[in-house]
Design a protein around this nucleic acid. Structure first.
Length: 126
DNA sequence: GATGTGACTTAGA
DNA sequence: ATCTAAGCCACAT
């Protein structure tokens, strides 16, 4: 079946696992893909992804940075914002809350209804 | 198989 | 806060 190397499939699959309203860093995606130190390659794959099946806009940089999105970083921000993620400038608000955490460990199913609940928190700065 | 590249990350100045 | 340097991985040529 054509292109799509192994790692790229794993990465795309990992990105697809990101639930709406949440985001993951390149490092997290790489970890789920099986290469926790391949954030660089993840970025490269994302650049080629450009597929509607993959919410590449949910993949952001570390520390809450938006990362990149081809020539439309603003579009990425808009998509995230449309899902309930508060984004201000190039930074994500409540980063620790929207950051998706894959499989914590053994039991413990932390499923806490995301609940972004914007509220006036975003009025902080715009 | 080597080289260059990048939607990255961390640390130091 | 901004910039530089180095480290890291997979992919394209």
């Amino acid at each position: 079946m054509v292109a799509a190397t192994r790692f790229s499939v794993l990465v795309l699959n990992a990105v697809r696992r990101i639930p709406p309203g949440r985001v993951a860093t390149y490092g997290d995606v790489a970890a789920v893909a099986g290469r926790p130190r391949a954030w660089r390659a993840v970025g490269n794959i994302m650049r080629e992804c450009q597929q509607a099946d993959v919410p590449c806009h949910r993949v952001v940089a570390s520390g809450g940075g938006l990362g990149g999105y081809g020539d439309n970083p603003a579009l990425k921000r808009a998509l995230l914002r449309a899902e309930g993620v508060i984004v201000v400038g190039r930074r994500i608000r409540q980063w620790s809350l929207v950051r998706w955490v894959p499989a914590p460990s053994g039991r413990v199913r932390r499923n806490r209804t995301v609940a972004p609940a914007v509220s006036q928190e975003e009025r902080r700065r715009a």
